[in-house]
Design a binder for these strands. Structure first.
Length: 282
DNA sequence: CACCATGTTCCTTG
DNA sequence: CCAAGGAACATGGT
């Protein structure tokens, strides 16, 4: 479920609900998910810790924790992979089939579940160090973006998925941002003009900000009872109207471009689907 | 059965 | 050493 906007909405939702709560117990049901932290290590470290806050970095969510009143603070880092979810649930509520880690917060459990187990929830913070700039912060500059693109012959769409270039863009919003910028996903990164780089940077920021706004507006269900409770495209089946018209190209192969009417195409780049309008994007 | 899926990391190749 | 491509991870939906 996650790219940057989905994680941002999750964190905004969760932060006020768990702030100042104490972790009483830790149950690890799928060891792989906490790696490289060990089950025993996680339990020893988390038990008795207080949640100071919850923040986001790229697609990661970060719990800031503190053991004692004036003790050193430390972090619990999570990533949702493709199918991860985090939610608060009453103690009596049955756990979902793929619940991987359960934190006992007293009245409620904080449940981390992930159908495919691609995600992580661990004390290892090393992945945060490798990340590039946050796209919605001032550190993401046109100059820095341009110089990073200059050296690569790779297709721009593929470059956008590199988390060291700019952090938080995934397969959906990469296609969306390129469409908004009017740039073909197949263009070699180094061939973009200065104007195109600036347009793309702006488009990235708009697409992500809009998705956060959308996710903050729409009524979301973060509980475990139905669906994925977020605002991903996959809800189309019985989704109400406001889920439509949101994505302009992603998963719309064969349908009309909402801007020019041409037929949206799907191609494969780096073994992943890319969607684009061959007329709007050159 | 076949193919597809919101992500990252590791291995191989050049 | 680096860049780029592809497989692996694991489960479910269509």
């Amino acid at each position: 479920m996650p790219e940057l906007p989905e994680v941002e909405v999750l964190v905004r939702h969760l932060a006020p609900l768990v702030r100042n709560r104490t972790i009483r117990g830790v149950e690890v049901r799928r060891e792989k998910v906490v790696r490289p932290t060990t089950v025993g290590g996680l339990q020893r470290t988390l038990r008795g810790a207080r949640i100071v806050g919850v923040t986001r970095r790229a697609k990661f969510f970060v719990f800031d924790l503190r053991k004692r009143r004036r003790g050193a603070s430390f972090k619990l880092v999570g990533h949702l992979g493709m199918t991860g979810r985090v939610f608060l649930a009453p103690k009596r509520q049955p756990l979902p089939k793929h619940a991987a880690v359960v934190l006992d917060l007293g009245r409620q459990n904080l449940v981390y579940e992930d159908t495919r187990y691609f995600g992580r929830l661990s004390l290892d913070t090393s992945s945060l160090a490798k990340l590039g700039p946050e796209p919605l912060r001032p550190e993401f500059t046109s100059a820095g973006f341009a110089s990073a693109l200059k050296r690569s012959t790779q297709a721009i769409k593929v470059r956008l998925l590199d988390q060291t270039l700019v952090a938080g863009i995934g397969n959906i919003y990469a296609s969306e941002a390129l469409h908004r910028a009017g740039v073909s996903p197949r263009r070699a990164a180094r061939n973009l003009t200065g104007v195109e780089v600036s347009r793309l940077r702006k488009a990235i920021r708009q697409v992500l900000a809009e998705a956060i706004r959308f996710g903050s507006t729409v009524p979301l269900n973060f509980g475990a009872d139905d669906g994925d409770g977020l605002f991903y495209y996959g809800r189309a089946a019985n989704a109400p109207d406001y889920y439509e018209e949101r994505l302009r190209v992603y998963d719309r192969a064969g349908q009309r471009c909402r801007r020019c009417g041409a037929t949206i195409r799907r191609i494969v780049q780096a073994a992943r689907s890319t969607y684009f309008c061959p007329v709007c994007q050159r």
